[in-house]
């Protein structure tokens, strides 16, 4: 497995962080992990919903100093 890929979407508003994740997820291999950084609370909630819908794995989210860290695994 490659090193976790960072998707820095801080400062962008919905659906910017989601779209940045989708662009990044197409560039990694199945099984690779990504971490999205977002200052947009709506996107932090939206991304796990999208992951559930399309079937990638949500490894967990947490917030630190106003930045949401959303961890993702490409599964297909």
């Amino acid at each position: 497995m490659a090193e976790k890929k960072l998707v820095d979407a801080r400062g962008s508003f919905c659906p910017g962080p989601l779209m940045e994740l989708i662009a990044a997820i197409k560039m990694v291999e199945i099984g690779d992990e990504l971490e999205v950084l977002s200052t947009d609370k709506g996107s932090a909630a939206e991304i796990p919903q999208w992951l559930k819908k399309v079937g990638h794995e949500h490894l967990g989210s947490h917030e630190e100093a106003g930045v949401w860290h959303v961890n993702v695994k490409r599964t297909k």
Binding site: S12, F13, G16, M19
Partner: peptide
């Protein structure tokens, strides 16, 4: 004023 994705970019994406 904010960093909202431009609508043309959203259509292209």
């Amino acid at each position: 004023q904010k960093n909202v994705p431009p609508f043309k970019m959203l259509f292209e994406q």
